[in-house]
Design a protein around this nucleic acid. Structure first.
Lengths: 257, 257
DNA sequence: CGGATCGTTGAGTTGTATCAAGACGGGTGG
DNA sequence: CCACCCGTCTTGATACAACTCAACGATCCG
């Protein structure tokens, strides 16, 4: 058993969301956690599990996926540092999806009993955790909209925008020549599984994104050569990521996004 | 201002989820609510709103939808009696979708300040509300899987199964000759918007469902003529609806689903 | 009884899938 | 350090699911 490192992206997210008091901060910092290193391509939890703990990503990228009866696979989410991919299992008894690592990851497991106690004693922290799960829900709605209504080209651009904004929010987006750039560990097969497209079509659409000078994608790195253009191509509006929410005063007062 | 009627489907759902104590039950029953009658096709809340209250459906059906930049529309969810279509707005400051009535509805509006107070004083009720929003998230994932991976035919069958099971859970599914039957207010256009299909294709797929004797659909009523066959056609497994979850003892003990 | 909404049908088109095969590239072991 | 290998990427040809356009029929409601 261990505690979260002071630099934990989870703690930083909490700062942004609720500006915690010292007491709240301490309560989170002193959570008993179990840190684990995960190799790429490993299932962290599986559909059907009844987990007694949830994990928080300290480093690396994971995906959540479901498998259909005919063996097809839908990736429903990508999660990065600071995210809690299976926080829902705190209240949903049986996991309805699996979580798998895309890259080498460091994750912090926290037992549900400790999370529940934390929620009882620190209601604003509970609100922040609830908020996290609601943002996940919002992202699902947006993905559904993408897969249901947007072209393959737009879907890919949209996802890239989302990943860039999410990385930026936790300080993992770097700028080269003023152009946003992130680590990109997603293979074309995985892109297809996330967006409901075949790899062949993903490949073709990527070529078009390149040929229109919207992106540079190579060697595990994605750069938005034309950030405005990429957002337009993807019909992207970051509102749904709810990055400007804050839960000060129990949410009684809202700040303008 | 008013209070919830004793027969409120919300209260019944709470009974199932947490078997509330008298105190918890009273706390919910005495929530100040504002009951409203909504005519069909009316927006209850709109994308971009910053609502100070959430609504609970007492009667009728609503849909949640988003609009893309090119004017297309994705329906992300249908909600029935007992559901809380915009409960997420308790913590997400800006609504990222609209809620619209499909049929005439009775909804109970509850101010966020009252919900927050309820959550503070009755943590198990808070857990139940959180659970509700998590089930919504689970349904989004399943819809995403449907739209991303399943054929038009399967998507429609799947949605019909979902609606039947949801209606059954709140006592709104009737059996004729042992065959499950529900009110069906969803037009083919709305079906298309929910499943990412054109109305023409929805129509064709419905014909096939009829010709294979899986459903009877007419006059605002859907009957599953072959319930097992319909589930197979839709690759449907109700696990994702988490109807068998209970949150007794703060969730420390789980029952088998 | 008339108008609006919803459902149905056919013809033609296109976005995307499938199949198949080859090229690249990064890691591993000899 | 090279050869090999596996996963990933790329490309072309073909097939089909689903879309669009367009018109007509049915149904409901006022």
């Amino acid at each position: 058993m261990n505690i979260l490192p002071p630099s934990s992206p989870l703690l930083r997210k909490l700062e942004r969301l609720i500006s915690p008091t010292d007491e709240e901060r301490q309560a989170v910092r002193q959570l008993p956690v179990q840190l684990a290193n995960i190799v790429p391509g490993q299932d962290i939890v599986r559909q059907g599990d009844r987990p007694l703990r949830s994990c928080f990503i300290e480093e690396g990228i994971t995906c959540a996926y479901k498998t259909t009866g005919s063996g097809k696979r839908q990736i429903a989410a990508f999660h990065i540092a600071g995210d809690a991919p299976d926080l829902q299992s705190l209240h949903l008894k049986v996991l309805d999806m699996s979580i798998s690592s895309l890259t080498a990851c460091t994750v912090a497991f926290v037992r549900h009993e400790h999370l529940r106690e934390l929620c009882r004693l620190q209601p604003r922290v509970a609100d922040a955790l609830w908020h996290e799960t609601l943002v996940d829900g919002s992202i699902y709605r947006e993905w559904l909209t993408s897969v249901g209504q947007r072209s393959a080209f737009a879907r890919i651009a949209h996802l890239m925008c989302e990943m860039i904004v999410k990385h930026n929010a936790v300080g993992l987006c770097f700028y080269v020549d003023g152009k946003p750039s992130i680590d990109w560990a997603v293979t074309q097969t995985q892109l297809g599984d996330a967006l409901g497209l075949s790899t062949v079509h993903v490949n073709g659409s990527l070529q078009r994104l390149r040929s229109e000078d919207l992106i540079y994608l190579k060697g595990g790195r994605l750069t938005a050569l034309n950030w405005k253009g990429l957002q337009e191509a993807g019909d992207f509006d970051q509102e749904y990521l709810h990055l400007h929410d804050d839960l000060f005063n129990g949410g009684a007062i809202t700040s303008t996004g």
